[in-house]
Amino acid sequence: MPWLALVGIVLFLVGAIWGLGFAPADSKQGNSYRIIFLHVPASFLAMAGYYVMAICGAVGLIWRMKISFMMMKSAAPIGAVLTFISLVTGSIWGKPTWGTWWEWDARITFMLILFFLYLGVWALQTSYQDRDAADKTSAILALVGTVNIPIIYKSVDWWYSLHQPATLKLTGPSSIDASMAYPLIVMIVAFYVLYTWMLLDRTRIEILERERKSRWVQAIFGQ
């Protein structure tokens, strides 16, 4: 679906140029805040991506739909990469804001755990030779993770409130000015579109890979 990629890239460029070039600098943080145009959308998608993965897994387990498992398999690495981007950009943002590369903040810690959850699903998926077992076991793990995510989130939040040092509180997204919010929204939409495109594209490759011996695939490649 090339048009989806095109729309995503255009939105991404618009959002990036707008956010990085034209949006005003923050009164407290100066220009360093501009990394939120990458950080926030990546974090959004990293979270949503886990649910996309788990729902695909559930659909696959309940209705035995192979395509759903293929989509789930594709969602795991994309989600892991997005979580990684979120962690790296958060860390880069943290340096000028907090003065450290790493802070055991509740959200960062949660993102780190989410990253490990993704890696677990991905690792389980790749360690089975038997494709059917790989699909189903990783789907179960993704579902177990989904049940756990709210509990993990709450417990990390509570843990942070116990140990919270007197650091400056971040400005919430609601309090940012419209001139910053619009490019951010464009970027979030761009990430959603790009995510959808990547997911579909990887799923397409997965389908071709799995059905490589069937006639219709061989017909496409003219063999």
Binding site: F116, L119, G120, A123, L124, S127, Y128, L141, N148, I152
Partner: peptide, 21 residues
């Protein structure tokens, strides 16, 4: 991981995040 010959490390990897709370 029961059907995997060497599932030990993988088992830890998938379980550790769930042990956080």
């Amino acid at each position: 991981t029961v059907a995997l010959r060497r599932g030990g490390l993988l088992l830890s990897l998938i379980i550790i995040p769930l042990y956080v709370p």
